[in-house]
Write a protein that binds this DNA or RNA. Structure first.
Ligand code: MN
Ligand code: MN
Ligand code: MN
Ligand code: MN
Lengths: 222, 222
DNA sequence: AATAATATTTAGATTTGCCTAAAAATAAAA
DNA sequence: TTTTATTTTTAGGCAAATCTAAATATTATT
C-alpha cells in the first residue's frame, strides 16, 4: 500500500515513456531516470514482485492496472502541488516542477483531497497539463469541447466536431480559426451561452451549439 | 548542506530531548526514535563526522551550533506546515502533526519563505508552540509580554513583571488573574494601547504600560 | 573496593538502491 | 546465415540505515 520515493519515481517514469500500450525498454528508462541499465533491471524485478509492472526479461516493461492507478495518483499530487506553488505562493511556471518533485511523495490521501478542495478543484497545472481527479480520471486535453471550459480559462482552437458549411461560415465571420486563442469571459447558465474574447477584438457571445462544436486545447497563462 | 530524512529526524529528536545544555543519552534517543541503541551509536558517529553533534563514546551527545541551526530550521518547517494544514486545509489540531512529519523534509528554502509569507508570518503553530523565524530566532512562549501579541491572538495570563500593589489593584478591578484567557481585539498604534476581551465581560482597553507588565503564554484556538 | 546491574559500543548481518565489469541475449549488418 | 553491434541481464560490491548478539564501560549496591 505504501511505496518508496524510488519506486514512485520509477512508476512515474514508465508512465511518461509508455505510449499506446507499447512496451518501455530498459535503456530508455535508464536514460529517463539518469541511472544505469543494471539498476533498472534490479528495480523492475522488485516492481514486478509487487505487481506494479508487467515485465519479462529482454521484453521491456509496462504498467499493470495497479501500476497505472499509482502513476495517476502521483501525477495528481505533482500537478496539484505545481498549481498551489504557482497560484498561492507566486512561483513562476518554470520554478514549480523541482519543488513539486519532492512534495509529490508526501502520501497522505487526506492532504491531497483537502488541497484539491482548497485550490478549487483546478483541472490544469501551470504548464497546461490536466490534473487527474481523485478517482484517477484524466481529461486528455487534445479533445476538449469549448463548452466545458470555465470563466477565465484560455484555450487554443484545434478542431471541429461538425464541419458543415454553415458552421464554417459562422466561424469565419467571428474570425475564429484553428490556432486562435480564446478566453472565456462569462458563462450564462440559462442557455449555456458563452461570452468569449479573441485577440484584437471586443468580447462577443457564442451559443451553446457553437461551443459544443469547437474543440480546443487548454492553454496556460503566459 | 543537504541532509537525509533520517539525519533530520535524529537532529530533531536530540533538539527535543536536550534541555539546558545537558547531554542526551543514547538510550533516551533510542526510546524517542523507536529504534535500538546500537543504531543510535552508528548514527551519532556519522553526525559527529558531519559536525552536527558533539559526541564522545559513553558521554552522550548534544547539538553543535550548526546542529542547532539545522534543528531550528526543521522545527520551523514542521510548524509552518502544521499552521498551513490547520488554517488553510481545515485539519483538526490533532491531525496535523503526522502529515507535517513528512512535509518538513521538503527542503526548498524558497518554498518555506514563501509559505511563511502566504500564511502571514504566523508565530505559533496550532498547538501554541512558537515558530522560529527565517534566521532561527524563536520566541519562547513562557515569557511573552501581552504587548507583543497581535489582533485575534489568544493567550493565558501567566505572570507579571512588576508586582506592585497598584498593578495588582488595577488587574483585580479588570478581573484579570493568572490563568485568565485574553483575546486581543485591536491594537492602537498611536499609543500602543490594546482593546482586549476576557470571558464573560465586554471588551475594554488597557494601556501600553499595563500590557508591558503582563506576561502571557500563547493559547491555540480550541 | 568488589560485585552486580545498567548503559553503551562493537561485530557481524540484512535490506534497499545504486554501481562496474563481464556474460548472455537480441537485433542489425555483411 | 554468419558475424558484428547493441541491449539487457547477471555477478559481485558499496554505502546508508537498520537489526541481534556479544563485548565492554559506567554506575550503583553491597
Ligand atoms: Mn512538473
Ligand atoms: Mn506540470
Ligand atoms: Mn508537530
Ligand atoms: Mn506542533
Amino acid at each position: 500500500m505504501n511505496y518508496t520515493i524510488s519506486e514512485e519515481n520509477y512508476i512515474k517514469a514508465i508512465f511518461r515513456l509508455q505510449r499506446a500500450g507499447k512496451t518501455v525498454s530498459t535503456n530508455a528508462l535508464a536514460l529517463e531516470l539518469e541511472t544505469k541499465p543494471a539498476s533498472i533491471t534490479d528495480m523492475l524485478k522488485k516492481l514486478k514482485a509487487k505487481k506494479l509492472v508487467l515485465y519479462s526479461p529482454y521484453q521491456g516493461c509496462r504498467l499493470s492496472s495497479e501500476g497505472s492507478k499509482l502513476a495517476l495518483s502521483i501525477v495528481r499530487r505533482h500537478r496539484l502541488w505545481e498549481y498551489f506553488l504557482a497560484e498561492k505562493l507566486q512561483f513562476k511556471w518554470d520554478e514549480v516542477h523541482e519543488v513539486a518533485e519532492e512534495l509529490e511523495h508526501v502520501s497522505s490521501k487526506q492532504l491531497i483531497e483537502r488541497l484539491d478542495a482548497f485550490l478549487g478543484f483546478p483541472r490544469f497545472d501551470p504548464h497546461g497539463d490536466p490534473i487527474p481527479d481523485s478517482t484517477g480520471k484524466i481529461t486528455m486535453p487534445e479533445l476538449v469541447k469549448l463548452i466545458t471550459l470555465r470563466p477565465c480559462e484560455r484555450a487554443r482552437v484545434s478542431g471541429l466536431t461538425d464541419q458543415s458549411a454553415d458552421m464554417l461560415k459562422l466561424l469565419k465571420q467571428r474570425k475564429i480559426n484553428i490556432g486562435t486563442i480564446v478566453t472565456i469571459n462569462k458563462k450564462f447558465e440559462f442557455d449555456q451561452s458563452l461570452e468569449i474574447e479573441i485577440p484584437e477584438s471586443i468580447p462577443f457571445i457564442i451559443s451553446e451549439q457553437t461551443a459544443q462544436n469547437i474543440l480546443v486545447q487548454y492553454e496556460p497563462e503566459s
